[in-house]
Design a protein around this nucleic acid. Sequence first.
DNA 1: CGAAAAACCTGGCAGC
DNA 2: TGCTGCCAGGTTTTTC
Length: 269
Amino acid sequence: MPELPEVETTLRAIKKFQRQQLIEIKVNNRNLRWKVAKSIEIDTKNQRILNLKRRAKYIIFELESLSLLLHLGMSGSLRIAKRDENYFLKHDHIEFIFENEKIIYNDPRRFGSLHITRDINNHNLIRFLGPEPLSKSFNNKYLFNLCTNSKTNIKTLLMNQKNVVGIGNIYASEALFLSKINPVKQSNKLTIEECKRLTASSKKILNSAIKCGGTTLKDFYSADGNAGYFKIKLNVYGREGLDCSKCNSKIKKVTVNNRATFYCSQCQS
DNA sequence: CGAAAAACCTGGCAGC
DNA sequence: TGCTGCCAGGTTTTTC
């Protein structure tokens, strides 16, 4: 799925629906990560969208009296179509119907989710999330403090959404490469200087990915109707056996916390 | 308890 | 072609 930059790009593509009236939601297939509640269709009828925003990898629809919480999982995507468009794809789960257009949520692997809540900030999926990586609260002191108290490896720590949100498997490898830190290094061995490099690198890679309009891999489609995807230059992810862009050694692949992890053993210690 | 591994799904691709 | 096994951007649940 989308990591933070892809979710942000998706949000921007549907931002024009802010202030519009949501006429209704149609659910074609309730089977997502959790079963989609029946009240999604009932309680959202004819409500204006007051605000559309992102928190971590979630997209939040703030309606007049409640909020919708959408996660794209591994393979979820949104696309915009004309309201009367009758062309559907396999795995089109949900339609958000507006006056002239609709947003269609497609999710082949069904790892995504849609929730309805009256108290978004206290929702269980939201309340335990760490700070946004692009905010000032994700800084060297904050990270160093987390690291000091953790024996787990730094990549796992970085991908734990309780520590900092939005960083997924691709950008974790990339941020660690940019900061010259080995992904399996024990967190409590990191110095404050390394934490400074890692927070800076994380912001840098996420920002440049957002600037490119998202992403990296094949499943991602931007929601504004432009099929295809944009590509940012990856230094390590998916480059096992290829030359490191900074030195003459080969990129290595290991498994960390059940996830493919790429790094340069020469550059990263 | 915390950490590691398995589980949830489908589809695409490499290899035979 | 067609089968099998493996892999995939995430997160929760189960197991150790």
